[in-house]
């Protein structure tokens, strides 16, 4: 690892190999990222109409971009389930009363009791 010696951890602590990609953290870039999957999806839907599936499900023939629709709905359904499930299943971290740190050799987490 040649780059390890040249890393300057004191200032920003950014890895030199990561410097050209810092723009990924930019808020505008983040906001506009949405266009990539959208355009990709639309292209694929069009391509999907040009090259239909060899073995579609019986009803798939009538839905253009069937997998895109299915994927979008499935994904949204999962995410919308999350808050409900969290209410049902989420408990305090000390719920089971088994304390301790994840891998105590390295852990930076504080013991839970001190949080509260």
């Amino acid at each position: 690892m040649t780059d390890r010696s040249s890393v300057d951890h004191s200032a920003e602590g950014v890895h030199p190999a990561a410097k050209p990609f810092l723009f990924l953290g930019n808020e505008n870039v983040k906001r506009r990222f949405i266009w990539i999957p959208l355009i990709g999806m639309l292209i694929c839907i069009v391509l999907g109409m040009l090259y239909p599936q060899k073995h579609p499900l019986p009803i798939e023939k009538y839905i253009p971009g069937s997998w895109a629709v299915y994927g979008f709905l499935a994904y949204s359904f999962i995410v919308f389930c999350a808050p409900v499930l969290f209410k049902l299943l989420g408990r305090d971290e000390s719920y089971y009363g088994e304390g301790g740190l994840p891998d105590p050799d390295y852990s930076t987490e504080h013991l839970h009791e001190e949080d509260h």
Binding site: R31, F33, I34, I36, P37, L38, G40, M41, C44, I45, L47, G48, Y51, P52, Q53, K54, G65, S66, W67, A68, V69, Y70, G71, F72, A74, Y75, S76, V79
Partner: peptide, 25 residues
């Protein structure tokens, strides 16, 4: 690697990422 397999798989994945970014937004 047939065209329809690649295309439909990408549909699914792009749609999922799109849903993620949309919900995030």
């Amino acid at each position: 690697y047939t065209v329809d397999h690649v295309v439909f798989q990408l549909q699914l994945l792009f749609a999922a990422i799109f849903a993620f970014t949309l919900l995030k937004r």
